[in-house]
């Protein structure tokens, strides 16, 4: 053990505590699960972003990552399976001063919620989507999902997955996302920086985070424990900022291309709406005052 760790005073609070609902700890995630690591990175991104946290809202769907909203010390919404993005769309449009973050898993965002993802990206809705991709449906016991690579054994593919998986970053780019990046839970500094970056970027932003599920995915596929996952990420990840997303598909044991792939400026939904209405209606256009729902 290094001296640095021993130097931490026993009464020191964890610097991410103010960003978490400590009255809800301990969390439900398994030992060595990567979701907590991403939440730590998110907390640090919130801190360094200097945003007013009363104006940041977090929306999750269902699943292991779906529980993130409940642990974040923000206005938080744990919605229905796959529907975090359309909920976030309504929240953002009704209250545009909010920075709305969608934090959910690969199954939630890309199977049951896949349609909402591509449409929100197409509209360039000003929301930030963080997808913790553990390559499986973990909450329900490790079934095959749309991001599960072929040849993997899962609870519903006992003889191996044979259907092709989505390349999430390519889909995000093709659908119109303003920002697309991929990191793993090994790349905590880069991930925190990417999260901070999207908190200051307009438009639909997408970060995919490869994250280990030792309990289900790795155990079933004889891929070792949490530490082995870190070694694997370290060994096979290759930073290629600006890489064509078409070259970033994931396989069971092959290279993981990480980095920032897309960072472009497109007018977002509200800008387009305002522009169109002003063009056609002129002075008759009334700025949306959606939250006029007054008090009693």
């Amino acid at each position: 053990m290094s001296d640095a760790i021993l130097d931490i005073p026993l009464d020191m609070t964890n610097p991410v505590e103010p960003f978490l609902r400590m009255d809800r700890m301990p969390h439900i995630w398994c030992p060595a699960c990567g979701i907590g690591t991403t939440v730590n990175c998110f907390a640090r991104a919130l801190e360094s972003s200097k945003l007013d946290l009363n104006k940041v809202a977090i929306v999750s769907g269902i699943g292991c990552t779906g529980r993130v909203a409940g642990y974040a010390n923000l206005d938080s919404f744990h919605t229905t399976h796959g529907r975090a993005i359309p909920f976030a769309t309504g929240l953002k449009l009704s209250n545009p001063e909010l920075q709305v973050v969608v934090y959910s898993g690969d199954g939630d965002l890309f199977a049951i919620g896949g349609n909402h993802f591509i449409h929100a990206a197409r509209r360039n809705m000003d929301i930030k989507v963080i997808c913790v991709n553990n390559l499986t449906y973990a909450m329900t016991g490790g079934q095959t999902g749309p991001a599960t690579p072929t040849e993997v054994i899962s609870a519903t593919s006992p003889y191996g997955v044979f259907e092709p998986s989505f390349n999430l970053v390519q889909m995000a780019e093709a659908a119109g996302a303003s920002y697309v990046a991929r990191w793993t839970t090994y790349h905590v500094k880069q991930l925190s920086r990417a999260m901070e970056e999207v908190l200051h970027k307009k438009g639909f932003c997408f970060i995919e985070v490869l994250s280990p599920c030792p309990t289900l995915y790795q155990r079933r596929n004889k891929m070792g424990d949490g530490l082995d996952a870190m070694k694997f990420y370290k060994q096979v990840s290759k930073v290629r900022n600006g890489a064509p997303t078409s070259e970033c598909a994931l396989t069971r044991a092959g290279e993981i291309v990480v980095g920032k792939f897309v960072d472009r400026d497109r007018p977002d939904y509200l800008e387009l709406l305002t522009h169109q209405m002003k063009e056609t209606l002129g002075d008759r256009y009334a700025d949306p005052e959606v939250t006029t729902c007054s008090e009693g």
Binding site: P86, L93, S94
Partner: peptide
């Protein structure tokens, strides 16, 4: 919205936003 699932939850996001 892209379907009725989306429409019926987008309105609830809007309500919690204050509309």
């Amino acid at each position: 919205m892209e379907d009725e699932l989306a429409a019926s939850i987008a309105i609830q996001g809007a309500v919690w936003g204050g509309a």
